[in-house]
Amino acid sequence: MSPVVLFDAALALGVLGCAALALTLRDRTGTVAAFMLTGLLVALSWLRLGAPDVALAEAAIGAGLTGALFLRGARRLGPLRARPPAPAQAAAAALGAAVLSAALLWAFATAPAESLYPPRVAAALEDSGVSNPVTAVLLNFRAWDTLLEIAVLVVALLLVMTLSPPRVIPDKLGALVQPFARIVVPVAVLVAGHLLWQGAEAPGGAFQAGAVLAGAGLALVLGGVRVDRRVLRRALTALALAGLAVFTLAALASQAVTGALLGYPDGQAKAWIIAIEGALTLSIAATLCLLFTGYGRRSAR
């Protein structure tokens, strides 16, 4: 397995190197590029760690969408104007960080790692309605976490609405983008639908599908489709808010039916989960789109 170990080591070094570049380069665009590269390498390493669901999400959301946000910010914030830290401060920071990360490495490397979860997940998977264990955890065993997570998205959206930073008006990218968008958008919609459907038994699910849809939406935006039409924005906002509403109401409805909050009725778990996931996909896509395009009345560049 030596080549694999070598690959792992190279990957880890690549992740660290890219992250260091992202955090030290003085050129804004360069740092963002390094950050996105870090995200992709991290996604790759998570595939190696046996977590394809997370890898998909990291590639789409962690690298793609966050990178787009950073690019937007890099343009608006202008060049870096940071003063170098005092030497004592830099030294103290380096020392503290080194100590802490050494302690963490020791702690994680020596931890017993005897998780209580896999046998319990395996035992309960039959009743969960889906066969992908990650989806089962996200939407059944620990659906409460997921509900609150959607709430985080909604609150972030509320915050952005309140702050109303400048709206995104894309550059005219010329003739190239529109044909690109014409191809990308239908494909992305198909892929999203597929990810959503196969999330029940294979890697994929609402988050990944939502992220892909959001990517399609952003392609449309950058391709020149104007999202500043009031009606369109209202519709998107309503869609974004609807996901949490549907999830919460479903939780209450399930309690009314079975007596347990988020406890789906026997045998109908899959239907409930697919319905909730469908709503979440659209809502997540709309939320991510709005988080990127913003609400401001003014526009920037």
Binding site: T66, V160, F207
Partner: peptide
């Protein structure tokens, strides 16, 4: 183990939300 995967997935989504707020 699927449970930490779910944690990380949740963490990624939470983080993009907070990042968007911070950027705003």
């Amino acid at each position: 183990d699927p449970v930490p995967q779910a944690f990380v997935l949740t963490g990624i989504v939470v983080l993009v939300a907070v990042t968007a707020a911070l950027m705003a």
